[in-house]
Design a binder for these strands. Structure first.
Lengths: 245, 245
DNA sequence: GTTTGGATATCGGGA
DNA sequence: TCCCGATGTCCAAAC
């Protein structure tokens, strides 16, 4: 036998009844279901929303995820996170797709008045993605070559805990002064300076030290406002990217 | 004539050559294209990633968005934001879907070795979504009834600009003291306290005032760590949700 | 379970 | 365009 192939099943322009039976069966089988057609969408939960009729693409995943996509944008216009229960039925001459969950109580209802296509797939995907260029990579770069931060820098700990949260890298400069390092994989704004500020303050209290700690922000670049805040707080900036140039 | 219906076209188990021609034509027409099958995915841009063969669902939108979904999770495993150019071709006996953009330079390549189904839709969707329960709703609640914050509170401005960013609500209490209000639509952690801290500091400098400003965080609830930080900084907390209970 | 902070975050508004 | 903060953020790791 050949290597197993995904087995799609599709229905074009089905009636609401036919489509509901098809989707119910597919969801029960643990298939990934897609549906395209004219529909309205209601959501009620952490927030609430309504969407007037339009052509959209609906995806129901076997893990309980529901996604409603329009022809624009990267984010679904409505969705439901993993862990929901999917249900398909006929209501008011339309195919009604409902995904619900508890804690928090949330409900997504898609009412498809004109079903253009429904399709069901049985996907198998055991592979996991390998991603590089993250903040973890930036940390590894510095730990592998601490001089990238500055000559004489010695890392003492990573993820050192403080009352304000964990410090990315904690170490010492060549004169024995304590250094708090905050890492960001991309250009930083004022929020990152606030974060560094919290850590330095917390660590100064934690260490009962009179000596002032050095705070260093490491990122590819920094906005003007963040640069001004850094200067005000007496912090430093070291330009560095997560990946070797 | 009937009201226009979405016009799907599909191909089940096509050859790579047939599928490439189909997708090229559909993309040129401005259609929304989906493809399900066994594929590998490469991404290179802000970060970089590789994904070994598995069954996935690919969506190409007419606005240049590309999404690759597995059977799990709400987020696509790989994607490309709006504004990309889609291209379909045959390479190495596979259907190759490539979405690229510049500034930043990014490239997503999906190589589908077994195409189970390709489908094309011509969606029309002029409707926009109505969402309630946002931070803007929380602001409207307080401005409509300032006593919700505290008796005697008088809002003076919203989005008041400071060197550290815009303050959500800026006002005065019943004793004439300046009040800085930061709003959050949901339970808040330490980051929100840091944000409030930045605004209060910036405004104190901006106003050249000796009097201490009051900082108030408004949210449905607050974490323990954030509560401790609030106390340390001398800030206050007012529990309030974006929607009436 | 909650909390915390990263993310190829995405998205919209404003300058 | 960049900058900035909200998001039904999502998500995983730590606790």
């Amino acid at each position: 036998m050949d290597e197993p192939k995904p087995t799609p099943r599709t229905l074009a322009d089905p009636s609401a009844t036919t489509a509901a039976a098809f989707v119910t069966d597919a969801v029960d089988r643990g298939a990934l279901v897609t549906c395209f057609g004219r529909c309205t969408v209601e959501y009620e939960g952490r927030a609430a929303s309504e969407l007037a009729p339009g052509d959209r693409h609906v995806m129901l995943k076997p893990d309980g995820t529901a996604l409603v996509h329009t022809d624009e944008g990267q984010k679904p216009v409505n969705w439901q996170p993993p862990g929901c229960e999917h249900d398909a039925r006929v209501g008011d001459d339309a195919l009604v797709l409902e995904s619900t969950r508890t804690s928090p109580d949330e409900r997504l209802v898609v009412s498809v008045s004109d079903v253009a296509l429904v399709a069901a797939f049985d996907p198998t995907d055991d592979e996991s993605i390998e991603l590089v260029g993250t903040e973890a990579d930036l940390k590894r770069r510095i730990l592998a070559d601490p001089a990238l931060l500055e000559p004489g820098f010695t890392p003492l700990a990573t993820e050192r805990d403080t009352p304000a949260g964990a410090v990315d890298i904690y170490g010492e400069d060549d004169e024995g002064r304590t250094v708090v390092v905050e890492l960001k994989r991309r250009r930083v704004g004022p929020d990152a300076v606030g974060q560094l500020h919290r850590y330095v303050e917390a660590l100064e209290r934690d260490l009962h030290t009179d000596a002032e700690l050095r705070g260093i922000l490491v990122a590819p670049s920094v906005t003007e406002r963040a640069k001004a805040l850094l200067a005000e707080e007496g912090f430093e900036f070291v330009p560095l990217t997560p990946r070797e140039e």
